[in-house]
C-alpha cells in the first residue's frame, strides 16, 4: 500500500457512462490484478474505490462508471493531480487458473479482468472472456480484449449484439478449467450457481477507508466475517455462502 500523487494524462469517454482515465505516477504498489485504488476527489469527503484496469511501471489505467456526484465530478477532470492510495485489496490468484481459464465480466465489472487476462496470457494460458452488457451502445473493451489475444464472447440483455441474454447464457457451451468474475451481485450469484468449476469473485461494497480500518464493508463468508477492502475484494467460490 502506498500514498502518492498521480497526474491525469487522459480521461476519455468509452461510452456515455464509462470513462477511461490514465494516470502517471508511482505504480509500484500495484502488484496483483484485481486490486483497487482509493482516489481523493476535491470537494468530497470520502475517497472513491476504483479497480485497476491496467498498469505499467509509470502508468495506471482506471475504467470507471459515472454513478453519482463523485464520479460525475471525476469524469469532468481533464488535467491535474489526484491523490491516490494504491495497492489496496487482495486481488485475483492467477496460479489457480489451470490451462483454460474463463473470465466473466458484467458492465463496469469488466475492467479488473483486463490486467488479469494480460497476466494469464503471459503465462501461456488459453483465455476465454465473456463480456456482458445491457445493449450494444454500452459495449466497451471488446477490441482491447481481442487485441490481447483472448477469445471474446459478447452478451447483451436486449440482443442488440452477441448472445441475447446474460453472461450465464454464454457460459453453457464453454469448456474451462477455472473462472474469474466481476460484475453486479445478481450476475455473480448466477455465475456461482451455473459454474462447473471452482473460481473467484470480485465483490463491490460501499467503503469508508478502503484499507481495513473502519469495518464499513464487512460481509459474512463461509469462513467468518471478512472485509471486502482487505481480505477481498476477490473471494474464492468456497468462501462465499451463496
Amino acid at each position: 500500500m502506498k500514498q502518492g500523487t498521480f497526474e491525469i494524462t487522459q480521461n476519455r469517454h468509452l461510452t456515455d457512462a464509462i470513462l477511461e482515465m490514465r494516470l502517471k505516477g508511482d505504480t509500484s504498489a500495484v502488484t496483483v490484478p484485481g486490486q483497487f485504488v482509493e482516489l481523493a476527489l476535491p470537494g468530497f469527503f470520502l475517497r472513491r474505490p476504483i479497480s485497476v484496469c491496467d498498469r505499467n511501471e509509470a502508468e495506471l489505467v482506471l475504467v470507471y462508471k459515472t454513478v453519482g456526484k463523485g464520479t460525475e465530478a471525476l469524469s469532468k477532470m481533464r488535467t491535474g493531480d489526484l491523490d491516490l492510495l494504491t495497492g489496496l485489496g487482495n486481488g485475483y490468484d492467477v496460479s489457480a487458473s489451470g490451462k483454460e481459464p474463463l473470465l466473466i465480466g458484467g458492465g463496469v465489472g469488466i475492467p479488473p479482468l483486463y490486467l488479469l487476462a494480460k497476466e494469464l496470457l503471459q503465462e501461456g494460458k488459453r483465455v476465454q472472456v465473456i463480456l456482458g452488457f445491457n445493449k450494444e451502445e454500452e459495449i466497451f473493451y471488446e477490441k482491447e480484449f481481442k487485441d490481447l489475444g483472448c477469445e471474446v464472447h459478447l452478451t447483451t440483455v436486449d440482443g442488440s449484439k452477441g448472445v441475447k441474454g446474460f453472461v450465464t447464457d454464454a457460459m453453457t457451451d464453454l469448456e474451462y478449467t477455472y473462472f474469474y468474475s466481476c460484475g453486479p451481485l445478481p450476475m455473480l450469484r448466477a455465475v456461482f450457481k451455473q459454474s462447473k468449476t471452482s473460481g473467484q469473485f470480485s465483490l463491490e461494497e460501499r467503503m469508508g477507508c478502503g484499507f481495513g480500518a473502519c469495518m464499513g464493508c464487512s460481509i459474512q463468508t463461509a469462513e467468518g466475517t471478512k472485509r471486502v477492502c482487505r481480505e477481498g475484494p476477490v473471494f474464492r467460490k468456497e468462501e462465499l455462502p451463496w
Binding site: F45, E205, R206, G208, C214, G216, C217, S218
Partner: peptide, 18 residues
Amino acid sequence: TPRIAECPSGMLNAVGLQ
C-alpha cells in the same frame, strides 16, 4: 451493508460495533 454514506464535509457510518 451498506454501512457507509458520504455527506458534505463528513460521513455516516452504521457499522454497529463489529
